[in-house]
Amino acid sequence: MDEPLLSIRDLCVDYVSEAGCVRAVDHVTLDVSRAEIVGVAGESGSGKSTLAQALLRILPPPAIISGGEARFEGRDILTLSETELRELRWRRISMVFQSAMDSLNPVISIGEQIVDTLVAHGAATRQEARSRAAELLEMVGIPAPRVDAYAHQLSGGMRQRVGIALALALEPALVILDEPTTALDVIVEREILQQIRGLQEKLGFAVLFITHDLARMLQFSDRVAVFYAAQLVELAPAAELRRAPRHPYTEGLLRAFPSVQSDADEPESIPGAPPSLLSPPAACRFHPRCDRVQAICRERQPDLIQLGPRRAAACHLAE
């Protein structure tokens, strides 16, 4: 296998507060190959959105990146200067935000927001950019004349499509989808995901797909990474993860989505609540909620152990 497109090693992100630091991403190691779709699953607050924004270095205060490296196309994102970051952003890595309503500027037309991006990176002159913006919108199924529309004039699904068109404007190598369909109904959600899949096959970009909806993710992704309490607990190809999860938390997640496991008749939620990151449980962070907890789980934190060429899990039971 040649060098991956994105190679994250022991990445740590902290949120500073007066009471001390909270580690929202804790020693995460993850690779994304070219044209691969990697899903990141986990409950809200597990650090998956933080990871996404950290990769673009756009996490607002009080966040700081406190360790590790994130090599993208051979360069460590964490060592780039402001100018280098500006060139990297959108041209090589782009992102679709969680809420298109909040992420599109309400007083600038959607076309202008695409034009700005093209012009800022020297991809087109203003005149060319306008027709290119219309093309991009048509590509995601929005009629070209709507290029002059404002965010509030579009439906939720349309706005999210604008976000996708915007993300693809500069043909980046990696597109981060940060819960792109959370605010949408199921039918629109499926349409949009199919569209992204189609575009991905055509244009060949890699995708980091973040969601709490494991069922969607398993249909959509090549590989899946499961996050729990700021840590990566399991990593596996989607089909294998579905068939034979190796971490009890993944098992619990699969049971919680009835559509994933055909034999389960009733969705079953994991007992307890995700821990506070201010004072996470010692040793294995999942042990207070785990139904197969052993003595060692309370004593030592499990390492992420390789369980095959493309699989890994952080559980003492998986060894």
Partner: peptide, 22 residues
């Protein structure tokens, strides 16, 4: 601190453009 300004930053616009236009 809003999402749309964060998106403008993510788009790789220059700080002056982010502040003045977005």
């Amino acid at each position: 601190g809003s999402d749309y300004v964060n998106l403008a930053r993510a788009k790789g616009l220059t700080p002056s453009r982010v502040v003045l236009r977005y």
